[in-house]
Design a binder for these strands. Structure first.
Lengths: 216, 216
DNA sequence: GCCGAACCGTAACGTACGGTACGCTATGTG
DNA sequence: CACATAGCGTACCGTACGTTACGGTTCGGC
């Protein structure tokens, strides 16, 4: 049986067939939420329940493997580290836009829902996995950009974590919690772009180096 | 049977006994999360299951009534509307502090968890109730303060909703989602005060009227 | 061609829990 | 006192679903 961990890349140890099964489970998770049944997964994946139990141990194991499988699929594009303000602004807007697209996707909503549901009851591995591959992964990707901005004299902050969290708040605002709670909040390509630009300008107004406020 | 609605104040129509039962359900919800059973509620409240069904219809009705009952207990202190910057800053800090205290409370976390869990499956009344009495209620309370600040020439924004959402993001940042996902994030009285002050200063830096930046 | 392993499909088991029925007690009310 | 009503406790029913068991099929290795 496969073991669960918060940050192991399970995509290495999975066979193609297993990946296909997890993809089926993922689709089912998006469609039906947490109340997907082992029977439904087996039927959708055209495999036997016995195989599911042999591979993943129990229902929680299957859920965890599914969440990790989705997490392992999200891979990061490296960002340039040039020192001019245009590049920094573009990078920040890109991050903001990416993040808004992620948290508003059906997959993210479904995964966060099931992770939140399981977070209360003891074995809250799912919440840790989602956080690790969501918010914490974003922080790890963004912090080098912030640091580069500071090195280039474009940004001014004492703690990268604090700066990141403010950026995070300016970008996401109430979007994620409203979506998780079922609020119909349509985010189009246009509004996401606008929100990303607005959040970036606000962030630069707060953390931009004193030598030259960039509008807003 | 009681009817469910997003914004009816049910505290009027509930008997003392019913309130006691809902308090028991609420405590159980905080302790055990969504997997509380009707039997457990009946035992905790020292009432019969039949009474629960007669009063609340079914399990969803009980859950909804419980969430509404908690919502009805949160009542608001009016804020002063004087026009000086000290008063505005104090009000904003107060709101920020209150909000952080709310979203980090066990009760709020439990309620949001169960509402998120139910949001995927059709009858997502709970999510609407939580949003209505949480984030939307906060907006209704805060917007008059923002408008007053604008009238007094202390704030500058075109849309109160947009300004509110930025304030919301600066205050909450990643706190709520991390708590819902089970992250151990200790918020003490001191850190909440500091965060509230920081968020308020950031908000004033972004939306304060041009005539005099207030530090930061 | 034979063997064992892996796996599919499905039937069956056990249990937890939502929902219902019923007997009992207590408290009015004429 | 007779009666009705409200509500407690509990036994019970039906079902959904996690889990297991088992017969049948495919496939690689000898």
């Amino acid at each position: 049986m496969l073991q669960a961990s918060a940050n192991i890349d399970t995509s290495e140890t999975l066979t193609e067939r297993q990946k296909a099964v997890l993809d089926a489970a993922l689709r089912l998770l998006v469609e039906e939420g947490d109340q997907l049944t082992m029977t439904a997964v087996a039927r959708r994946a055209s495999c036997s329940k016995e195989t599911l139990y042999k591979w993943f141990g129990d229902r929680d194991g299957l859920l965890t493997a599914t969440v990790q499988w989705q997490a392992s699929k999200v891979r990061v594009a490296p960002v340039d580290r040039e020192g001019h303000i245009a590049s920094l602004t573009a990078s920040l807007e890109r991050f903001a836009s990416d993040w808004l697209n992620v948290i508003s996707s059906d997959t993210s909503i479904a995964l966060n829902r099931v992770a939140v549901s399981h977070a209360g009851s003891g074995k809250d591995n799912l919440g840790a996995v989602v956080l690790e591959n969501g918010r914490f992964a974003l922080a790890r990707r963004l912090k080098p950009v912030l640091e580069a901005g500071r090195q280039a004299g474009l940004l001014d902050f004492s703690d990268a974590e604090t700066a990141f969290r403010s950026f995070f708040g300016l970008v996401a605002r109430d979007v994620q919690i409203r979506l998780l709670l079922g609020d119909r909040l349509e985010l189009t390509e246009a509004t996401i772009g606008g929100d990303a630009a607005r959040a970036t300008q606000q962030f630069l107004a707060l953390f931009g180096a004193k030598t030259g406020p960039q509008g807003l």
